[in-house]
Amino acid sequence: MREVRFKINGEEKVVTVESRTLLVHMIREQLSMTGTHIGCDTSSCGACTILIDGKSAKSCTLLAVQANGKEIITVEGLATAEGLHPIQEGFKENHGLHCGFCTPGMMLRAIELLEKNPDPTEEEIRWGISGNLCRCTGYNNIVKAIQYAGAKMRGAELPSTEPEFV
């Protein structure tokens, strides 16, 4: 057993884990933060995506011990006292989720994408979320949600959230 010290959603934590404990299990089971999900066993689906030192990461493919000294953000850490994070607002306003299972991972991935590329094209967004599977939405509205969040984050005019359902 090893002790891991890290910061998660702004809070310092010390947790004792086995060397083999996967980071996603530490977050879900030991910290009881269940917003981070598990959708596969081959690092393919991205439902477990979190931010580690600002980088989007598949927490099923990292050991908990690797989090030592790091700063982690999960979906639980996005909203603040002032309200929702722009990416959360984007997903809600644009119907970017159905069952909600892939949503936390999708949003955390999108945050890093937008930090590196504040005004991405549709193509860049699609490639940028290619490590996250969604089975419900067909991705159209996820693309719109990310575009909306990007506009909000860079202070641009917000795109329409009306469905283009001719």
Partner: peptide, 23 residues
């Protein structure tokens, strides 16, 4: 009306309650 979904609030904040979250 294209009203926004009522269920989204919990899903976008990691507060959905899926079966693996039951402890």
């Amino acid at each position: 009306h294209s009203i926004k979904r009522k269920e989204d609030a919990r899903f976008i904040q990691g507060k959905g309650n899926y079966v693996d979250d039951v402890k």
